[in-house]
Simulated assay, not measured.
Amino acid sequence: MTGGPGWSGPQPPGGPNPADGQQQPPSPPSWGQPQPPSGWNQQPPPSGGWNQPPGWNPPPSGWQPPPPGWGQPQAGGPSQWGPLPQAEKPGIIPLRPLAVGEILDGVFSALRRSPGATIGLTLGATTVAQIITIILTAIGQRGSSGVAVLCGVVNVIINFVVAIALTGALSIAVSELTLGSKVKIGEVLQRVRPRLAGLAGLSIVVTLLTLLGLIGLLIGAVFVGVALVLSTPAFVLEGGTINTAMRRSWTLVRGAWWRTFGILLLTGIIVTVVVSVLTVVIGVAFAAGGDSMTDPVTGDLTGTGLVFTAIVDIIISIAIMPIMAGVVVLLYIDRRIRLEGLDMTLAQAARDRRAATNQGYR
């Protein structure tokens, strides 16, 4: 199970089943292999020339081909001139190629519309991780150097796994919000659980490749990191293997590397500003705590200092993780809209859901 029942592969449209003649419920959209919408790349018959097939009739006089829609493949996205066209907006984004501001607005809309599945999930996961960190740090401070190193390694592994699971879970939550649907924390965890082992492997591979690029050249590390940034939503929403998810990210980013890099850089700047403000406030609070935060003899953190540090880490994680994960998911959706016409599939899925629940767009 990836993005929910039926989201991992092409699904037949709702309608009579020729096998049994019964009406089938509408199917969720498929995040799997690209599915060209109806009319994909259809070209008008040639108006003249050699080798015309028998029985071919030319179009009537004055016939003009219809203009291309957003569901057709776009080499570089929509035109840079003029206003963006109207599009359905069942959830946090309009279903068409997205501008940079719409991606950022979609992320903050996701935080507002479903704080439980975004901020709440981040809060819960990081709180558990920080409780474990407090325990391991306290043990390491009171043990030998070997015990301290072991506790440090275990702490890094635990936080790494929590970050991986959280990124995958947020991918599911944001993808559902694009259709105007809210998903509960329990459902998100249920969907992401079967992909946790693969997510860990994917993250390790991407990290190692990025480090290899860093060893070769800093520019290489940046290039590889951006090219593979969409691997996580591709892996969680489409299913498949780690290798498949990496190839999908490479394919989707190709031709838009600089745009992807620019949006990630802009998001990083925004997050850095937020974290900097929080750091100043937290630093003042830490200074006000004085000797209650650290042991004046050993310099180790006291119990109060450990709790305070954990709270700081939780606050910073809440400020960073949902925003960065949301931007990556919306970048993934935007690239698939531009290259594969995913907007038509999502719009139909949103209409089917609205019809099934007899609700309008919110």
Rank of each mutant, 00 (worst) to 15 (best):
I242W: 07
G62R: 09
D20N: 14
Q190L: 10
L264V: 10
V277Y: 11
A125P: 04
T244L: 14
N358F: 12
L301G: 07
I135F: 10
L202K: 02
P10A: 14
M321A: 15
D105Y: 01
D334R: 03
T267K: 01
W50N: 13
N41H: 11
G48Q: 04
V328E: 05
P46T: 03
P28F: 05
T260C: 13
G255S: 07
L330I: 09
G220R: 02
G152D: 00
L84F: 03
V205P: 01
G299S: 02
I242R: 04
F160A: 13
F223M: 15
G49W: 03
L98T: 03
R351W: 04
T133H: 12
V236P: 02
A319K: 05
Y361D: 14
T302A: 07
A355R: 13
P194L: 08
N41C: 14
F308M: 12
A138Y: 08
T122Q: 02
P12T: 13
A148R: 12
V192N: 00
T345S: 15
G124V: 06
P65E: 07
F160S: 09
E238K: 10
R362C: 09
L98A: 02
L265Q: 08
I270V: 15
Q348R: 15
A138P: 05
F160M: 12
Q11L: 08
G21L: 11
V273F: 07
G143H: 06
M321W: 12
F286V: 13
A197N: 07
S276M: 11
L211T: 04
A138C: 06
D291A: 15
L179W: 09
I119L: 15
A165N: 09
I131N: 02
V307L: 15
G305E: 07
G283T: 08
R195P: 01
L264A: 10
G240F: 08
D300K: 08
Y332K: 04
I164H: 01
G283K: 03
A87R: 08
A19E: 14
M321T: 15
E340M: 06
L136E: 00
L177C: 00
A110N: 06
S317N: 13
V156N: 14
A319T: 11
I135D: 06
F308Q: 04
R193I: 00
V297L: 13
P58S: 13
Q64F: 09
L264D: 05
P233L: 01
I131M: 13
T345W: 08
V312C: 09
L331H: 01
A285D: 06
T126M: 14
D20L: 08
M344V: 15
V188D: 00
L265H: 01
W250L: 13
L330R: 04
G3T: 02
A110T: 10
